[in-house]
Design a protein around this nucleic acid. Sequence first.
DNA 1: ATAATAGTGTCTTTCAGACATTATGAT
DNA 2: ATCATAATGTCTGAAAGACACTATTAT
Lengths: 243, 243
Amino acid sequence: MLSSQKKRTGNLFSVDEYDKVLFSQDPVILTILNDKLCVLLVKREQEPCKGQWGLPGGRVDKERCSDLWTALAEKLKQKTGLENIYFEQVFTEGGADMDPRGWSVTTVYMALVRHEDVPWQPNEMGEALKWWPVDHVNDAAPLAFWHERLIERTITRLRNKVIYLDLPMYFMPEKFSIKALREAYEVILGRPLSRQAFDKRVRKANILVETGEETHGNYRPAELYRYIDRRRVHHYSGELKAK
Amino acid sequence: MLSSQKKRTGNLFSVDEYDKVLFSQDPVILTILNDKLCVLLVKREQEPCKGQWGLPGGRVDKERCSDLWTALAEKLKQKTGLENIYFEQVFTEGGADMDPRGWSVTTVYMALVRHEDVPWQPNEMGEALKWWPVDHVNDAAPLAFWHERLIERTITRLRNKVIYLDLPMYFMPEKFSIKALREAYEVILGRPLSRQAFDKRVRKANILVETGEETHGNYRPAELYRYIDRRRVHHYSGELKAK
DNA sequence: ATAATAGTGTCTTTCAGACATTATGAT
DNA sequence: ATCATAATGTCTGAAAGACACTATTAT
């Protein structure tokens, strides 16, 4: 099998298989659900870690994908049905003890989606999917591999970026009130923000337009807004302050 | 050979070798030399890309290193003699066309050093080392693999971070004038900075102390400073403006 | 009318940029 | 004395936080 692989790659150089590592890509897919930051997990139906919940990632399909990005997009579609979503690379981790099958490496991505965009059904491989609050991923049973750690580090990255980047845009529905946007920030950061300061910051940024519609139900209605351009994440010149 | 490796890892799960990829780590080691941002390159003495210049990275030594970080530190020492330097992970890239030996993945790191800390001699493997200005890495001959691309992306990352992080600290000698620090910023960003605004920003940050010594040679001498704490990179609350 | 929430205005602070002024040592 | 550079001060503008005040709708 080794020699057949050498033939398959058809190159002129000797490849020592021992230079290879098990490689996977793991997306940390986040959303806000019931006012909590949640991560999308799948129930593993195969060894190792069969029966445990983990990130919807896996090996790259070297036959069908010629680079990491398309491989991840492919995996996302296959495991979650998601397409054309926002994701960015966060970090790569690896070592001898990450996977019982041996020395392995994983590249972790942060994906931000609206929970409505994820199908409720089990995926193509018959694995169940669930959203789980990021603070309690380990409550029922430990996650597969180092996935808990990977999620933690991704959340930290998100919190660091939300200080100056309007990443919560990806969690918002088409139309929303500024209050709803602020609440998204508050959920991510885990602390309240000054209502007036936040509003002013957002309004000055010129990234929203009024829809003319309003919320209804609780006292004074709030204007509903829509993003002018969903393809660009606004970069604020100043940072949200520590307290 | 394949089956012997399965034995070596000694695990209970089947490992499909086809799930493995060639994996390497490539540090982009930067310094400021002759008022230019330069990257440390090695001349490859082995195929593929033999004779071309490239980044001083390579495969991880799975026998001796149990995680990516120690593997990189090990590689750095072996290839450049550098130890205990600042580096951070930048991104991971890979695909079918990056290496003629087949589908491969590389994790790229940014390392910032003082050029005096790099030995002039060829490394342990007899490979020559040189500093090369980042704008002209391809002037003589194309670099190995996708290394030019990897360097470019790393420089972009550095420029984005220097706006708010005092990363040039790692380029500075023990004692230096504020002018010298500003020049480091200017070399990295490729544009002049307001002298007064820069000075005020640095002084207010409270990260330097006077040494009592002064520059000499050109007209009025400048005070020489030293970092209070070299272990922490100062994070400015505001960003250096675009122009 | 009152309560609750939405939206706006004012003041303060912080910090970067622009510009002016003073300080100091080489020539 | 002059020149080049170093260091400091003043003014302006942008933006965030705190707080007050007005606006609007359900009850």
